[in-house]
């Protein structure tokens, strides 16, 4: 997936490579080793090369049995992981297809995120528009936010039992707590000039919110949603510890109890890959929606 990582950088403008490619004439004379290194880390293919190198080293270490005292089957290997992936893709996991596991997790995350973000947007806007609402709820959210989702799971099981509701609740709460921060910040940072314009045109409160505050706050709202989504996806594994029957988290958990370490790696890799795709989606949406930001 390193190729995709590079394109995210280009989309978000984080990739400084074109500006920092060393100009042999403009730079003080460096040793050829240094120049090679600088060329390497500035190359767009660098992330891909890094991953390939890591895989090669891993394979080498495992093949040579260089880790003392640990059986190879507990460490897993790149080829073993690939074999596990091919097997899972063809035969599925414990009678259900790999796609079923992936979609179970995806649906949970998307549903939980939709609920969390759907509440966070109006709630964050209310907190930003009415300082008393912000003061009332701000400290509660600040208290809850740093608590890991894992810590809530026993309580959630007590409240909701071991069904789907509890899992979605955990994801939605996480998405909400982070998205609301972005929405609140966005609303608080709406430039006075825009609010003044809205007052000058005698916009109703509803129209001010909808046509001035919301678009002006959108850049920070998008950051909040992006963080909320990333964390919602991250807690899916924790959420699926609640007696899930399907899902990538369930697959990882289940495989680990049987020491199927390569299956665990496949699960982790798929979670990472989907995370990158989600980021890419947000980057694309931001580019389209927020083309005006900072210009």
């Amino acid at each position: 997936m390193p190729g995709t990582a590079a394109s995210i950088d280009q989309l978000t403008g984080h990739n400084m490579a074109p500006d920092t490619v060393p100009d042999p004439k403009g730079q003080p004379p460096a040793s050829s080793g240094k120049r090679l290194l600088s060329l390497l880390i500035n190359s767009p293919a660098y992330p891909a090369l890094l991953v390939i190198a890591a895989i090669c080293i891993w394979q080498f270490v495992v093949a040579k049995g260089l880790v003392p005292g640990v059986p190879t089957r507990y460490i897993g290997s790149p080829t073993g992981t690939w074999d596990a992936f091919v097997h899972l893709a063809n035969k599925g996991y414990l009678g259900s297809s790999l796609w079923q596991e992936v979609s179970a997790s995806l649906i949970r995350v998307l549903l939980g995120f939709a609920i969390g973000a759907g509440i966070a947007i109006p709630f964050g806007m209310a907190m930003g528009m009415y300082p008393s609402v912000g003061k009332l709820f701000g400290p509660i959210f600040s208290f809850l936010r740093p608590i890991p989702a894992l810590a809530f799971i026993p309580v959630v099981i007590i409240w909701f039992g071991i069904g789907q509701t509890g899992r979605i609740f955990v994801i939605a709460t996480t998405a909400f707590l982070y998205a609301v921060l972005g929405v609140l910040g966005g609303v608080q940072h709406v430039p006075q000039a825009y609010l003044r314009a809205a007052r000058n045109y005698h916009l109703s409160r509803r129209r001010t919110l909808l046509y001035v505050v919301l678009p002006a706050a959108l850049p920070e709202i998008m950051v909040g949603l992006r963080t909320g989504m990333a964390l919602a996806w991250a807690v899916v594994v924790a959420a699926e510890l609640i007696a899930a029957q399907h899902g990538l988290g369930y697959m990882i958990e289940n495989a680990s109890t049987f020491f199927e370490v390569n299956v665990v790696y496949v699960g982790i890799a798929i979670i990472g890959a989907i995370g990158v795709l989600i980021e890419l989606g947000f980057a694309l949406a931001s580019k389209r929606l927020l083309h005006w930001v900072g210009r």
Binding site: A197, N200, H202, P215, A216, W292, R295
Partner: peptide, 17 residues
């Protein structure tokens, strides 16, 4: 602010979006 008055500010103050 009264709806009778239209204001043009120092900076043109258009909505960038």
């Amino acid at each position: 602010p009264s709806p009778e008055c239209g204001y043009v500010f120092q900076e043109a103050n258009l909505f960038p979006w």
